[in-house]
């Protein structure tokens, strides 16, 4: 609003100055010659009427007047010019000032707006910031809760599975044990049947060293395959006599394979046998 007014004011001044200028110039340009011409005419007329001295005096006075007038005009013109210039300068300055002011204003406004925006942002940020830990906490909490829930679920499931598995295992073990027991009972029967067969076979291969009755005794631990092949023979109790020990070791090794039940599950009960060689008892 004030902007528009300011500008109009400046224009008004400018138009005045221009009119003044044009007037001044034309005045000066028209005035002087016409004046001169008029003056010339009058002078010419008057010259004829007035005596020379008077005329001269008049002329000088006119000339002086004219010169004074001219200088005054000139002065006036300069003063006007100066005035206009000063007005223009002032206008320019004002304009500049106004503009600067306007700019400042704009800038201020801008800045204010920016500041406002910034502030708002900051505020937002701050609120956001302020909200964040809590939120995070909250989020975390929910996440944790969720996780815990899942874990709980998983655990429950796993527990269930383990329990199931354990139960199944226990059942299985029980079954195996029952089966074993059954086998054991069967094996006892087989044992009664096979023990003499095994003993007879080893006896058949034991070349008893002469004089072995004189207190020699040895125990061998023998490992067998399910088919009765002798895997290892270890002297667990030596007779103290190398020849006697060798004779009993060789007896078992030569007796391979030993007669075992054909059912490998039953044969397992015969996988380790301790042979006690004690000729005194014979």
């Amino acid at each position: 609003m004030s902007e528009g007014y300011g500008r109009a004011f400046i224009y008004a001044i400018l138009v005045h100055v221009l009119v003044l200028l044009v007037l001044g110039i034309s005045f000066d340009w028209q005035l002087i010659p016409s004046n001169n011409h008029q003056i010339d005419d009058k002078k010419v007329v008057q010259a004829t009427l007035v005596d020379e001295g008077k005329v001269q005096k008049e002329l000088d006075r006119i000339k002086k007047k004219e010169a004074a007038r001219k200088s005054a005009a000139k002065k006036e013109k300069a003063r006007l010019k100066e005035l206009v210039r000063q007005a223009a300068l002032a206008e320019k300055k004002a304009e500049k000032k106004r503009k600067a002011k306007a700019r400042r204003l704009v800038e201020l406004k801008k800045k204010q707006a920016l500041d406002k925006k910034k502030k708002a942002l900051e505020k937002k940020r701050k609120t956001l910031e302020a909200r964040k830990p809590a939120e995070r906490k909250k989020k975390k909490l929910t996440k944790k809760k969720k996780r815990e829930q899942i874990e709980k679920k998983r655990k429950a499931h796993a527990n269930k599975l383990t329990a199931q598995r354990k139960r199944r295992q226990a059942e299985k073990a029980l079954q195996a044990l029952l089966r074993k027991e059954q086998l054991q009972r069967q094996a006892q029967g087989e044992l009664n049947r096979y023990e003499p067969l095994i003993r007879q076979r080893v006896e058949r291969f034991w070349i008893r060293p002469p004089g072995a009755k004189t207190g020699l005794k040895a125990v061998l631990r023998v490992r067998l395959t399910p088919s009765g092949e002798v895997l290892t023979v270890r002297v667990v109790q030596s007779s103290g006599n190398a020849i006697f020990d060798r004779s009993v070791e060789n007896a078992v090794k030569k007796a391979t394979p030993l007669p075992l039940p054909s059912n490998p599950e039953l044969a397992e009960f015969f996988s380790v046998i301790d042979f006690e060689f004690d000729p005194q008892k014979g």
Partner: peptide, 29 residues
């Protein structure tokens, strides 16, 4: 079940002692 299992295991272990065969005779060869 577990206890029963353990009990059985112990029982079987006890009866599962290593088979012992006594050899008192050999051949005179």
């Amino acid at each position: 079940t577990t206890l029963l299992g353990i009990g059985l295991q112990l029982w079987v272990c006890q009866t599962m002692a290593i088979l012992k065969i006594e050899i008192t005779k050999g051949v005179e060869a």
